[in-house]
Write a protein that binds this DNA or RNA. Structure first.
Length: 652
RNA sequence: GCUGUUGUAGCGUAGUGGUAGCGCAACGCCUUGGUAAGGCGUAGGUCGUGGGUUCAAUUCCCACCAACAGCACCA
C-alpha cells in the first residue's frame, strides 16, 4: 500500500482486476507495468469507455483498457492518423494548401483541402509515397493545449482560415488542442497514436473529389482526397478484393453483359429495356400486382400530362418546378399557350379519382394503387445507371383513410412489405422515421400528430427504428424501409408517408357517420420504390444469378450433335408450353463452348441434348454454379423446373 | 448543378500532327465434337459533337454533349 493515499488512484482493468497506481500515471506506463509486450503493442488507452492518448496523465479512478492493433478501436485510430498523415504530406508537397477537416469514414478516411490548383489523379501516387516516407521517419506525436484566441490568431496568420473558423465554432467548454507530428501540427480533438510509425503501411489513397465546405452547396468547394486504411496488409487486401467484387456486380455492367437494357444520349436518364430486362421487370411487376390485389388495393392509371393548375394546387409547382418536365401546347392563335407538366408523382391524380362522386366513411380505407410512370428532371450528377433516372415507375399507392385507420393501415402495409422483401430474397430490413424538414407545408399540430402516430405504429408492430431528423417530405413525415443486400450494402426502397396537406389543398373529403364532411388522411406508400431502381438492386444483390422465377432465360437446351436439333426444338416447345422461358442452342459449336457461354450468361439451367438424350427422350441437366450433371426424362425436367419456377406467392 | 477524370467498331482496349491497329463478340466456310473458349476466313470505325489553329487534326486549342467518381440533390 502506498503511504500517500491522496496520490494514488485505482484503475480497473478489463479482466476486472484492480490496481493502484500513482495519480498522473499514463496509459503507456500502465501498459509497461503489465508487460513489455503490451507496452510495445499499445496504441492508445480507453478510459471509462473513451479513447485517449497513451501519454495522457490519468488523474482519477477509472476503468482502463489498453488498446492494441488487435482491438476493433485500432481501426478508427489508424484511420484518423492516416487523415493527419495525408494532410501533412499534402502540406509538405504543396505549400500554401489549406487544411480543413479529415474524418474517419466507413473503410477509411478523407481530408478536405483548399487549394487553387486542382489535384491530379497522378498526384495521389506522389502523396501516398510521401505518407509512407513520413511513417518511415516515425515522427513523434505531441499534444498541446492552446488558448482559444491565440490558436485562432495563429492559424489565421498561417493563412488557415478554415481552421480559424473551426476554432471559433468549437463549444466554449472544449479544450483547443493542437497535435504535433514532428514539426507539422494540426488542430485536432485527438486522440492520436504516439508516432507516425504506429500507423503501419496498410493504407492506400483511393479517389479524388470535390466537396463543399461544411456540406453546403452554397459554400466554397474544396478538394477531397479519399483513402482506405487497415490494421495490416491482409485486411487491406480483403477490402480491395471486396471492392472488386462489388464492381463485378455493378448493374450497369451486368445489364450490358446479360442484354437487359441500355441507356443512350438521346434519352438521358431513361431506360431502353431489352427483351431480357423487360421480362425481369414484368415478372417483378406482376408479382407485386398480385400481392397488392390480394392486399385489397384497387389498381388505377392516371394521365401522364396534367395542367399546370393542378400542380399549383398540389404545391408541387411551388416546391419542385425546376425538377419537372413541362410541355407547352399551342391551342390556336386566339388562345394562350397551355402549360402541362409531365407527372413527377401520382398523388394528385389519385386524389382526382377519389374526388369523383361523393365518398362515404364506408368507402374508407380506399387503397388506390398505380404502377405510375413518373418523370423528374434529376440533376445530371445524380444519374446512375437505372438506379437514379429521370423516367421511372413507382409501385405507388395512396390510402385514403380516417385518422383512426392510420395505425392499422401502417401495420397492414408493413406486413405486406415484409412479405414482399422476404419473397424477393431479402431477409431483414431496417426502419427509419424521417421527421419534419424545413421548409414544409401544413400545420405544426398536424406534424406533431403525424410523427407520433408513425412512432406509435412502429411500437405496435414491434419494429425498432431510428430517427432520420429533418428528412421527411414537405407534406409529411415518413417511415423509410432499408434493405441490406448480399454484400452488406443498404438500399432505401419502401416508404409510407402521412399526408394531411394534399387532401386539403386538393379538397378531398368524405361524408362521416354523423353526416358532416371530413378530410381523409392520405398515406403515400411504395414497397419497391422505383421499379427501375429495384431491378438494379436485384441485379446487384444476386450478382445477375437470379432465382429461377426471376431469371429472364430460365433454361437453354444445348445440342451436342446436329442430329439432336429436332429433339431440342421439341424439348423447348414442351418447356415453353409449361411456362418455362427456354431457348434452344443448336449452333454449330462444341458443347464446351456452349456450356461456357451460357454459364457466363448466368442461365440457371443448361439442358444438354446429345444423340443419347434424343433417343431416350431425356436431358442432361446442369444447374448454374454446379458441375454435376443429372440425366432426367424430359417430362421430369419439365415438372422439376415448373415447380422451381413458380413465383414465391404462387407456390403450393 | 459543382469539382475532377474520360470519350477510338457491339464490348474491352493500343496508338499517332501525315485520314487507325489488337482481343472478344458478329458473319461465312470446315469441323458433329459429351459439359467452361476447335480451325480458317470475312466484314465492321467521318476516333462523342461543333468550331478554331495548321499545307495537313483522331492527335493541339475552345465550346458543347455524354459517361464515370465524389459532393450537393432525391417530392
Amino acid at each position: 500500500m502506498s503511504a500517500d493515499l491522496a496520490n494514488d488512484i485505482r484503475i480497473t482493468l478489463p479482466d476486472g482486476s484492480v490496481r493502484t497506481t500513482t495519480r498522473g500515471s499514463t496509459g503507456a506506463q500502465i501498459a509497461a507495468s503489465i508487460g513489455a509486450g503490451l507496452a510495445k503493442a499499445a496504441l492508445a488507452v480507453k478510459l471509462d469507455g473513451e479513447l485517449k492518448d497513451l501519454d495522457l496523465p490519468i488523474l482519477s479512478d477509472a476503468k482502463v483498457q489498453i488498446i492494441t492493433r488487435k482491438d476493433p478501436e485500432a481501426l478508427e485510430l489508424i484511420r484518423h492518423d492516416c487523415a493527419h498523415l495525408l494532410a501533412q504530406a499534402v502540406q509538405e508537397l504543396y505549400p500554401g494548401t489549406q487544411v480543413t477537416i479529415g474524418p474517419v469514414i466507413e473503410d477509411g478516411f478523407y481530408y478536405d483541402f483548399a487549394r487553387n490548383e486542382p489535384f491530379r489523379p497522378e498526384d495521389l501516387t506522389v502523396i501516398e509515397a510521401k505518407m509512407r516516407e513520413l511513417v518511415a521517419r516515425d515522427l513523434p506525436t505531441k499534444r498541446t493545449v492552446w488558448d482559444r484566441d491565440k490558436a485562432a490568431k495563429h492559424f489565421l496568420d498561417l493563412g488557415e482560415v478554415y481552421k480559424a473558423e473551426i476554432i471559433r465554432d468549437l463549444p466554449k467548454d472544449e479544450e483547443v488542442r493542437v497535435y504535433y507530428h514532428g514539426d507539422w501540427h494540426d488542430l485536432c480533438r485527438g486522440p492520436h497514436l504516439m508516432s507516425t510509425g504506429k500507423i503501419g503501411t496498410a493504407f492506400k489513397l483511393t479517389k479524388l473529389a470535390g466537396a463543399y465546405w461544411r456540406g453546403d452547396a452554397k459554400n466554397a468547394q474544396l478538394q477531397r482526397i479519399y483513402g482506405t486504411a487497415w490494421r495490416d496488409d491482409k485486411e487491406l487486401g480483403v477490402y480491395l478484393h471486396r471492392v472488386e467484387e462489388a464492381e463485378k456486380r455493378d448493374h450497369r455492367k451486368l445489364g450490358r453483359e446479360m442484354d437487359l437494357f441500355h441507356i443512350q444520349e438521346e434519352a438521358v436518364g431513361q431506360v431502353f429495356w431489352h427483351p431480357n430486362g423487360w421480362t425481369l421487370y414484368r415478372t417483378l411487376e406482376n408479382y407485386v400486382r398480385r400481392k397488392i390485389t390480394k392486399g385489397d388495393y384497387r389498381e388505377v392509371k392516371t394521365p401522364q400530362l396534367m395542367d399546370r393548375k393542378l400542380w399549383e394546387e398540389s404545391g408541387h409547382w411551388e416546391n419542385y418546378r425546376p425538377n419537372m418536365f413541362i410541355a407547352e401546347v399551342d391551342e390556336g392563335e386566339h388562345k394562350e399557350k397551355r402549360m402541362l407538366a409531365v407527372k413527377p408523382m401520382n398523388c394528385p391524380g389519385h386524389v382526382q379519382i377519389f374526388k369523383q362522386g361523393l365518398k362515404s366513411y364506408r368507402d374508407l380505407p380506399l387503397r388506390l394503387a398505380e404502377f405510375g410512370s413518373c418523370h423528374r428532371y434529376e440533376p445530371s450528377g445524380a444519374l446512375h445507371g437505372i438506379m437514379r433516372v429521370r423516367g421511372f415507375v413507382q409501385d405507388d399507392a395512396h390510402i385514403f383513410c380516417t385518422e383512426e385507420q392510420i395505425i392499422p393501415e401502417t401495420e397492414r402495409f408493413v406486413k405486406l412489405l415484409s412479405d414482399v422483401y422476404r419473397d424477393l430474397g431479402f431477409d431483414t430490413f431496417s426502419v427509419k422515421l424521417a421527421t419534419r424538414p424545413t421548409p414544409r407545408a401544413g400545420r405544426e399540430e398536424d406534424w406533431d400528430r403525424a410523427e407520433s402516430t408513425l412512432e406509435l405504429a412502429c411500437h405496435r408492430i414491434g419494429i425498432p427504428f431510428t430517427i432520420n431528423a429533418g428528412e421527411g417530405t414537405f407534406y409529411g413525415p415518413k417511415l423509410e424501409f432499408v434493405l441490406r443486400d448480399a454484400i452488406g450494402r443498404d438500399w432505401q426502397c419502401g416508404t409510407i408517408q402521412i399526408d394531411y396537406v394534399l387532401p386539403e389543398r386538393l379538397d378531398a373529403e368524405y361524408v362521416a357517420e354523423d353526416g358532416t364532411r371530413k378530410r381523409p388522411v392520405m398515406l403515400h406508400r411504395a414497397i419497391l420504390g422505383s421499379l427501375e431502381r429495384f431491378t438494379g438492386v436485384l441485379i446487384e444483390h444476386f450478382a445477375g444469378k437470379f432465382p429461377l422465377w426471376l431469371a429472364p432465360v430460365q433454361a437453354v437446351v444445348a445440342t451436342i450433335v446436329s442430329d439432336a436439333d429436332g429433339y431440342a426444338d421439341e424439348a423447348v416447345a414442351a418447356l415453353r408450353a409449361a411456362g418455362i422461358r427456354a431457348e434452344a442452342d443448336t449452333r454449330n459449336e462444341k458443347i464446351n463452348y456452349k456450356v461456357r457461354e451460357h454459364s457466363l450468361a448466368k442461365v440457371p439451367y443448361l439442358l444438354v441434348a446429345g444423340r443419347r438424350e434424343a433417343e431416350q427422350r431425356t436431358l442432361a441437366v446442369r444447374r448454374l454454379g454446379s458441375e454435376a450433371q443429372e440425366n432426367l426424362a424430359l417430362t421430369e425436367v419439365i415438372s422439376m423446373l415448373t415447380r422451381e419456377a413458380a413465383p414465391p406467392d404462387l407456390r403450393v
